[in-house]
């Protein structure tokens, strides 16, 4: 089974607006680390000039902006469930 690919933007805007906390969320959870291929990447250039779309993540090739821990968990849980079925 292919792992879920999750790229978290670690550019300055995203980092200042919660990117690092998202990294922690996935890294510190054994459930997620088992299913997710986590990468910390350079600026994805989608946060907007002023960073109001930060933080940005790329999940299985799709870009999501204004990511929060709650939203990310929901998305990951959904993907893990469909993968398991």
């Amino acid at each position: 089974m292919a792992k879920i690919s999750l790229k978290i933007c670690c550019g300055m805007n995203c980092l200042a607006h919660g990117g690092q906390e998202l990294l922690d969320l996935v890294e510190d959870s054994p459930t997620y680390t088992a299913y997710v291929e986590l990468a910390c990447v350079e600026c994805l250039n989608t946060c907007g000039d002023r960073g109001y779309n930060s933080p940005v993540v790329e999940l299985n090739g799709k870009i999501y902006s204004n990511m929060t821990a709650e939203k990310l968990m929901e998305l990951l849980d959904q993907l893990i469930q469909t993968n398991n079925n």
């Binding site: 670690c10 550019g11 300055m12 805007n13 980092l15 200042a16 350079e42 600026c43 002023r50 960073g51």
Partner: peptide, 14 residues
């Protein structure tokens, strides 16, 4: 400092 980096449009990763 992070805010100042943002203000100068400097991304230390790059």
């Amino acid at each position: 400092l992070a805010a100042v980096f943002q203000a100068f449009h400097i991304d230390p990763t790059k």
